[in-house]
Design a protein around this nucleic acid. Sequence first.
DNA 1: TTGAAAGCGCTAACAT
DNA 2: ATGTTAGCGCTTTCAA
Lengths: 329, 329
Amino acid sequence: MKQPKMTDVAKVAGVSPTTVSRVINRRGYLSEKTINKVEEAMRQLDYRPNIVARQLQSQRTMTIGILVPTVANPFFGELTFKLERYFFDAGFKVLIGNAENDIKKERLYLQQLLARQVDGLVIATHNHQQQIPEYQNTNMPVVSIDRYLHETIPNVSSDNYAGGRLATEELIRRGAKHIIHTDSIERFNKRDYLRQRAYQDVMKEHGLEPITYKIDFDSRPELMNQFFNRIFDEHPEVDGIFVSNDMDAIQLLQVARQRGMTVPSDLQVIGYDGVPTTTRIVPELSTVVQPLDEMAKTAVKLLQKEIKGEKVTGSYKLPVKLRVSSSLK
Amino acid sequence: MKQPKMTDVAKVAGVSPTTVSRVINRRGYLSEKTINKVEEAMRQLDYRPNIVARQLQSQRTMTIGILVPTVANPFFGELTFKLERYFFDAGFKVLIGNAENDIKKERLYLQQLLARQVDGLVIATHNHQQQIPEYQNTNMPVVSIDRYLHETIPNVSSDNYAGGRLATEELIRRGAKHIIHTDSIERFNKRDYLRQRAYQDVMKEHGLEPITYKIDFDSRPELMNQFFNRIFDEHPEVDGIFVSNDMDAIQLLQVARQRGMTVPSDLQVIGYDGVPTTTRIVPELSTVVQPLDEMAKTAVKLLQKEIKGEKVTGSYKLPVKLRVSSSLK
DNA sequence: TTGAAAGCGCTAACAT
DNA sequence: ATGTTAGCGCTTTCAA
C-alpha cells in the first residue's frame, strides 16, 4: 500500500489539504480542535510529509554537498564529521562525494549537485580546478577548504604559512641543521604552497639550504617507502624533516626506524594536521595542529551566509598550534 | 537572474517542453534536427534540469542514506567510502549521518530520511535498536551492517564467530596460555556477541579459562589507558590479548610498552578490523581482517534488490582472514 | 479560521 | 516525430 499523502490526511480529518499543511508548519490561524483532528489523522495514517514535494515548492533542499578526496583518510574523515555535525545543527543534511583525486568523478558530482539538488557546496578535494569549469558557475553557494577555486569563492584553511614557519623554526631551535621538507605534489596553485614557502624563508633566514621533495599524493605505501629511502640515501646528513601531513610523517618514521635511525636523536620529525585519530594512534609524532573544528565551523557559517544571499569572498586563515612530542628533542 | 527551466529551453528551441524532456532523457523518436536545436538552446541558456522536480515525478531520489557512529573513525570512514563508491557506480548519491552513539540523533536522522528523501538506508550505527521504533517501519528498504535490527532487515557482517575462533586459536597455537578478550560494551544484542562466544568456546576446548573485559565504546583515551592498566594489574600473568577492534588494540600496545612489556615476547596481541589506514599506520599489529570491500558490495547489492521490490532478509556473513604481523610470536 | 485554485519543474499518457 | 494535458505532493496566494 502506498504512503499516505496530504489529501488522505485531509480526508480523514475532514478538512482541506491547506489546513493540514498549516498544522504541519504551524502557520496562520488554527483552532485547537482542528489541530487535534489533523494530528490524530496523521498519527492514524502514520503520515510523513514528502520532503521532495516540499523542496520543489520551496526551492531549497536544506542539503549541502561535501566533496573530499576520500573519507577513508583520517583527515578528511574528521573534517567531514565536523562539517556534518555543524550542518546538522543548522538544519542541513549532507551529501558526500569521494572524488578520489579523479577529475572526471569530481565533475560528475558537480554536475549532479549543481542541478539544484543541494543548497550549497563545500569543496575539499585536491584536483586541478582549471580542469573543472563547473567552478566558474557562480550561482551556487560554495566554500572551499584549503584550496583556491575562484575569486568569488571563499576559502577556509589553516594558516599554512605560519604553520610552515612554526615547524621549521622549531626544528632549528632544537638543533637540527639539515632539514628537509616534503610536500604533496598535487597542490597546483601557488597560493597553496605556503607551507613550503615558509619553510624556505625560515631556512634562508638561518643561512640554511632548503630542500623540498614532492610526493605524489596517490602513491602507494611501497612507493612512499622507496621515496623516503631515496631521501635518506641522497641526504645521509639529514637530521630534521618537516612533512606536509601526518600520514606521510608516520610512514617516514617507520622507514627511519627500519634504517636503524633513532628518533629524535638521529632525526627529528614534525608533521602537519594533528587530527585526534592519528594523534591517538601515533602520539609520539610532533605536528602542526590544524584547527579543524574552527575550520568546519567557519565553513558552515560562511556557506550559510552565502545561502542567505550575502556575498562572501576572501581567504579565512585560522591559527595553527604546535604539538610537541617525542619525535622532537 | 533565475535558473532557466524546461519551458525556457523549449521557447528558445521553438519546441514543446515534452520534446526537451525527450532530448534530455533520449526517449522516444527524435529527429536529428530537433536534438541539435534543443541541445544548442540548453547550452545557450546553461540549462540544468531540476533534479528535485524529476524526483517528485519519478518518486525516486536515487539517494541512499548511510548512518554510522562517525566517519572520523577509520573503520567507518573506510566503510562509508566503499559504500559511497559502489552506490555511485550504481547511480546513487549518498547522504550521511553521524549518529555519534546518540539515540536521539539517530531518530532525528531516520525521521528525516524516512520522509521519502532517500530510496534506501544503510545502518551501521551502534545504538540500541529497541529504543528506535522507526526500524519497525518496513516500507523503506534497509540493510544493516554488523547489527541486528529487525527480522525483515537483512544484515551484512564479517563472520564474527569464525574471526573470534581464528584469533583465539592463533594465540594458543603460538604459545599463549593466559589469554584475555576485550570487547565493546555497546553490542546489546546477543547475536552480536559472536566474537566473544567464539573466544570462550576455543578457550574451553583447550581447557583454558576465558576472561572477557568490556570496554565502553565512547570512553576517552585516558580512560582506555586506565582500563588496560587495570587488566594488567589484575592479570599479571596475561600473555595474549584478543581485542575486539584495532583502535583499541593499538592503544593497548601503547600501554603495554609503557609498562615495559615487550610485544610479542611478553605479550601477544591480535586486533579486529584490518582497515588499510590503520594497518598502514601500525603495521606491527596482527589482526582479523574484515572483508570491508565485499561487505560494502554486498550491502549495495542487497539494497538495490530491495529497492527493486524483491524481498531480502537474513544474515550475510562474509569470511575473515588473519593478518599475521610482529605482535605475534 | 478555513478552503479553492494555482503553481513549483518535470515526465507519462494520450493524442496527432 | 512532436505536442497537449494531467499530475507527482506540497505550499502559497487569494477569497470567503
